[in-house]
């Protein structure tokens, strides 16, 4: 099914088109949402909202870009909104704990608890997520799409609506920032 046929099917409420849409893009949507939110539960909930948005705004899809690019755009925007929501929640929780004297904030969003992983690795995973999560927004988007989603610079430039050189520069700066953020956690660096 081509992108055009798929969009036509979605606009016609065709069940087969829905099925095809979910089968084809489910992994892309859930994984991208997960890389940004760092929480699989959030990513799964978010993916339902993302698919609803896709069918709601299918009529506005312009065929100038690939459908997957358009879906990436929706996914990234929704995921970043979710991350902001999580951060706000975290602040409120922190404030709540200050007044109630609770035992600290449960890890949420980018610092979500990683289960079934040895403690040391879990800690490293959290450090990495935090490091990626605290990159400036555009650097984070470019880095995640490049390193996690393995999109080409051209594809990233289409998703982000930026020039190729801007994407190259964003990824370069993201890597420099990230290695700086990670370096301080290396035992060899701490010894110096």
């Amino acid at each position: 099914m081509t992108d055009t046929e798929l969009i036509r099917g979605i606009l016609g409420s065709d069940r087969e088109a829905f099925q095809y849409l979910v089968d084809k893009f489910q992994k892309q949507v859930v994984k991208t949402a997960f890389y940004f939110t760092g929480n699989m539960e959030d990513a799964e909930d978010l993916s339902q909202e993302i698919f609803l948005e896709i069918i709601d705004s299918a009529a506005s899809f312009r065929h100038s870009a690939a459908l997957s690019t358009w879906i990436y755009r929706i996914t990234v925007n929704r995921s970043l909104n979710q991350v902001k929501r999580n951060k706000r929640m975290e602040i409120f929780q922190r404030m709540g704990h200050l007044f109630t004297g609770g035992d600290g904030v449960k890890e949420a969003g980018i610092n979500a608890v990683i289960q079934d992983v040895p403690h040391e690795q879990k800690e490293k995973q959290m450090l990495l997520r935090h490091a990626v999560g605290t990159l400036p927004e555009n650097q984070r988007i470019a880095f995640v799409l490049s390193k996690y989603e393995e999109l080409s610079y051209k594809e990233i430039s289409e998703v982000m609506n930026l020039s190729l050189s801007s994407v190259e520069s964003l990824i370069h700066r993201a890597k420099l920032n990230l290695q700086k953020k990670l370096l301080v956690h290396f035992p060899e660096y701490q010894k110096k």
């Binding site: 979605i10 606009l11 829905f18 489910q26 859930v30 997960f34 993916s47 698919f51 069918i55």
Partner: peptide
């Protein structure tokens, strides 16, 4: 990282419930 195997079914049901796009 894997995700819920039934997620696709859940999404599809939601899309169908959503009405007439």
């Amino acid at each position: 990282a894997g995700f819920n195997a039934f997620l696709g079914t859940r999404i599809l049901r939601k899309l169908e419930e959503h009405g007439n796009p």
